[in-house]
Computed example of a mutant assay.
Amino acid sequence: MADFVTRFAPSPTGRLHRGHALSALTAWTAARAAGGRFLLRIEDIDPTRCKPEFETGILDDLDWLGLDRDGPVRRQSDHLHEYAGVVDVLDRRGLLYRCFRTRREILDAIGDAPHGPADAARPGPHPAEEEAALLAGGRPFAWRLSLDRARAALGDRAWAQLSFVEEGAGPDGERGLIPARPETAGDVVLARKDAGTAYHVAVTHDDALHGVTHVIRGHDLFEATHVQVLIQALMGWPTPVYRHHPLLLDASGRRLAKRDKAETLQSLRERGMDPAQLRAELGF
């Protein structure tokens, strides 16, 4: 099926581990089985944590696993102006507002929120005079997507029809046609004055640009789908089919993570593991 397009989209914030190998192999195998395309995207929009040496390591690891790619590698840091254009479109449509609250202030509000964290994550715009004073003082701000304005822009009927098809399974076994619930995330940040674009903008933009038909990724990103479906609807982009898969867990039941020093593919290679052995271990 030539119109099957999927991608593997790691962030170069460390070396890949078995969990990344599972996700990459799942997407690559699905693409090859369908006669489709497998794209590689480097999601390096965080300049403080992403390093060129880790990007090089990602390419080495995928080559070692035997995962060939179709087309050039997409490096998101080379396309920040495109994501800024998306934010500008949404702002000109009146769907965004400036939020000057710090991350700590938002977290404190979430802890004190009587109706749950989603309500606290919808701080709303500042009064006009207060906003003008904060801007004049050079206070950093984030652009937040207003759920109320987004719903008004789409209309109640279109809002109620927001949904996505899950061909894998969510963390609680969700599958089939799933209603999107962007309200569970609150008014998400789409950009920061001092840090460029946010993940939700970059990922939906690139999926639409490259005609991604199937997003294949782990359970940890299942909830992000709800917000991404909303952005796709607002921008007139198609919603791909989603296939979420379980995560690999360590001996204590926690998912493998870079921050927990999960054993890297580089380490496996250096101690002599054959890539076919790892593929078999992961069920491929």
Rank of each mutant, 00 (worst) to 15 (best):
M1S: 14
F4A: 08
F4M: 07
F4N: 10
V5G: 11
T6K: 02
R7G: 13
F8G: 07
A9L: 06
T13C: 12
G14V: 08
R15K: 07
R18F: 03
A24H: 00
L25Y: 04
L25S: 07
T26V: 10
A27T: 05
W28P: 04
T29L: 12
F38M: 10
L39V: 15
C50I: 10
P52C: 09
E53D: 14
T56N: 06
T56C: 07
D63R: 12
W64G: 11
L65R: 07
L65D: 11
G66Y: 09
L67N: 07
R74H: 15
L80W: 05
L80V: 15
H81L: 15
H81S: 15
E82L: 15
Y83D: 08
A84W: 07
G85D: 14
V86C: 13
D88N: 13
V89L: 14
R92H: 14
R92W: 09
R93N: 10
L95K: 01
R98I: 00
R103C: 01
I106D: 06
I106C: 04
I106M: 13
L107C: 02
L107A: 12
D108Q: 12
A109I: 06
G111L: 07
D112G: 01
G116Q: 03
G116W: 02
A118H: 04
A118Y: 00
A121Y: 00
G124I: 06
A128M: 02
E130P: 00
E131T: 00
R144C: 03
L145P: 02
L147C: 01
G155I: 10
G170M: 01
G170N: 03
E174R: 04
I178T: 04
E183R: 08
L190R: 11
K193F: 00
A195I: 09
G196Y: 10
Y199R: 07
Y199P: 14
V201Y: 10
A202T: 13
V203N: 13
D207R: 15
A208Q: 08
A208L: 10
H210L: 15
V215N: 10
V215I: 15
R217V: 12
R217A: 14
A224F: 08
V229G: 08
L230S: 09
I231H: 07
M235I: 06
G236L: 10
T239C: 12
T239D: 04
V241R: 14
R243K: 00
P246S: 05
L247F: 02
L249N: 01
S252W: 00
R254W: 04
A257K: 04
A257D: 09
K258C: 04
A262W: 01
L265K: 04
S267K: 12
S267F: 05
A280E: 05
L282A: 12
G283A: 09
F284Q: 14
